[in-house]
Write a protein that binds this DNA or RNA. Sequence first.
DNA 1: TTGACAAGACCGACCGGTCGGTTTAAAGTT
DNA 2: AACTTTAAACCGACCGGTCGGTCTTGTCAA
Lengths: 207, 207
Amino acid sequence: MVKHKTNTKEKVIIATQELMTSRGYSATTVDEIIKYAGVSKGGFYHAFKSKEELTIVALEDYEEKGWEIVANGAYAEIEDPVERALAFVQFLEEKSGELWAHGCLLGSISIEVANSHPSVINRIDELFDDFEKGIEVILAPALETKKITEVSGKDLSIHLLAVIEGSIITAKSHRNPRFLQDGIARFRHYLGLLLKLDGVEKKSTHQ
Amino acid sequence: MVKHKTNTKEKVIIATQELMTSRGYSATTVDEIIKYAGVSKGGFYHAFKSKEELTIVALEDYEEKGWEIVANGAYAEIEDPVERALAFVQFLEEKSGELWAHGCLLGSISIEVANSHPSVINRIDELFDDFEKGIEVILAPALETKKITEVSGKDLSIHLLAVIEGSIITAKSHRNPRFLQDGIARFRHYLGLLLKLDGVEKKSTHQ
DNA sequence: TTGACAAGACCGACCGGTCGGTTTAAAGTT
DNA sequence: AACTTTAAACCGACCGGTCGGTCTTGTCAA
């Protein structure tokens, strides 16, 4: 009746997400993961059949939790599609520290597994695609409202994702998380120009 | 009689650049590098004192060769700062396949060394900075000409770099190099809007 | 004769993963 | 309630192999 209560899987998944986000795939060892999670090696391999399978589970859980934060933003209440799209990007900007404080799990491991772990990169591909489609639903109506055809909602979604991932890289190498926030703000500026609005310049949240 | 210079260093550097660009730092082993370069382990450790030191040399050489291609573009001949800036971005777009066909060495290893190899990430930081400053020299005069103050040349340079690095990630995970070209084209569109020009957009090809 | 350079066997630490055995707790039996 | 059964959860010593790096033994041009 009562399920066996165990949090080994959860602890391992969280440890994996945190360690791989800041070290990548290869540099994160199973021994490090189990030490960080406070779990034994036997327990680890009872819960997951391999490091590769664990990585895929961690990626899926990461996407789910991330999208839950994004989907529940106040921007969703806004009626006007144009204002909603801009508020959405500003929401990402404000939540960027919470969402990608130490990087993005997908971005951190995508490069090094692209040519060696097909199952992982395939899942990353799908998860990126899900995220893009989620963004598209928010951005496309704004373009439609303004009758803009030179750029599609899909184009913009792909671009926003690239801006986020790229800004994470520059933020990491410059050791300054501000670069991520500024990168998203710059995209918002672009979106504002596209939608032919004025006065969308950055409302700085914290210096 | 010209003394024949040993090319062990050069072969190792090229092998390192190619392998690390597509696999990252940790996943690229010294044994793989020497096999790819056709060099013995003794020769390797005679030429470089460690994998870490080699990585820094490979990064510097990578930046030098990359910037040589960028600096010699035809855009440089254009007199008008605005047209020159736009032509520069279009040049990057056209050369993106040559410059970042299999990724960017700096981006590929920056994430995984950020918290474990200070000397490497410090050099990456500086090299990114050099690249940014090089771009700034080209973009800033266009903003000045158009008397645009809401965005600085530095802001735009940082953003272009982020767009490139991020687009490389999405291109890799989607296994489609087109994403990189489109990402740069999207930046050019932004720049065009900023400079209040029309007709700089090209149709997107994402399907 | 010398010293730069190359070769590859070798080193200890560490890698991902396995294994036999122990603990835990829900369910069945009395 | 007390005991037995059962199977999942868990443990950590251990495995073969690989890691970055060292060392001895050369080769060869000056």
